Simulated scan of single mutants.
Amino acid sequence: MTDNIFFNRADLKHCGSNVIIGKTARIRYPELVSIGDNVIIDDFTYISTQLEVSSFVHISSGCSIIGGRNAMVSFGQFSTLAPNVVLAAGSDDYISGLATPMVAEEFKGDVEIGSIHIGDHCIVGANSTILPNVTLSTGASVGANCLVKHDLEGWCLFAGAPVRRIKQRNAKIILALEQKFRNSK
């Protein structure tokens, strides 16, 4: 497989087997990115932070995973982002600082640099945004057009801006399907 024009695949911290990365995906700091097996990162995705991706993960087109070199985003197995999701593991100070990466730290104000953890079997719907220092526990599912500002409990469906719990997901069925899938290999 050839490298695309936006980064060199050989510069990734780790890249597992059966990984598909779209030709127009952009990874600003490939040396900070680890990708497991059986992962797809679609075209027009932008990544500018530390990233750890487990196996069987799909990051759809147009997603932005941002926060800078000191922030961290991680994905558990069987998790997915729908198109145009923003994971912002870092956030500028819009009240009293200059909000641009092109100025020295002393002029930025109270910048929030943190992490986002997407657990196993999590789904994030199209056009949703997750802010710094948020964990989606195993099985959490976020609908389209949501704003996530706090940790979400596992095996629940959430919707809204900001999100609120809507209903329970069926963990037993989902985990049984995972086991069937693994046994079929």
Rank of each mutant, 00 (worst) to 15 (best):
I5L: 11
I113K: 10
S60T: 11
T2G: 13
R69L: 14
I47W: 03
K180S: 15
R28W: 07
V111F: 05
L152K: 03
F181P: 06
I5M: 12
F78N: 00
I95H: 15
G67M: 07
L12C: 07
I20M: 10
A71G: 12
R69K: 15
D92V: 09
V124Q: 02
G109S: 10
I59M: 06
I27M: 01
V53R: 01
K108D: 02
A89W: 07
C156R: 07
L157H: 00
F107G: 05
E153R: 15
V33H: 03
K23A: 07
D42F: 08
S60V: 09
H150N: 15
N70C: 09
G114K: 08
T24Y: 08
R26G: 12
A10Y: 01
A88E: 04
A159L: 03
N127D: 13
D3I: 05
N127L: 03
A99M: 07
E178N: 08
I5D: 15
P162T: 01
A10F: 02
D93P: 12
C15H: 02
S17K: 14
V163A: 08
A126D: 07
C63Y: 05
V142I: 15
V57P: 01
T80K: 13
S96L: 06
H150Y: 09
N8C: 05
S141K: 06
N18K: 03
F78E: 00
S141G: 04
R26S: 15
K13W: 01
I95P: 06
I20E: 10
V19E: 06
G67I: 07
A89Q: 08
V142E: 05
F7D: 09
S61Y: 14
L131I: 15
V148N: 10
Y46I: 12
H121F: 13
G109A: 08
P30C: 10
I95V: 15
G160W: 00
F6H: 15
G139N: 05
A104F: 04
Y46P: 09
H14C: 08
Q50K: 14
S64V: 07
D3L: 01
I116A: 06
N183Y: 05
G36M: 05
L98P: 04
E112F: 06
H117N: 13
V142L: 08
H58T: 12
N84I: 06
N183E: 13
I118D: 02
K185T: 15
K108T: 11
E105Y: 09
T80E: 13
S115L: 00
S55T: 10
V142Q: 09
T135E: 11
R9I: 08
L32Y: 15
G68I: 13
Q77W: 03
I65P: 00
W155N: 13
N18C: 05
M102L: 07
I173L: 12
F107H: 11
A144Y: 02
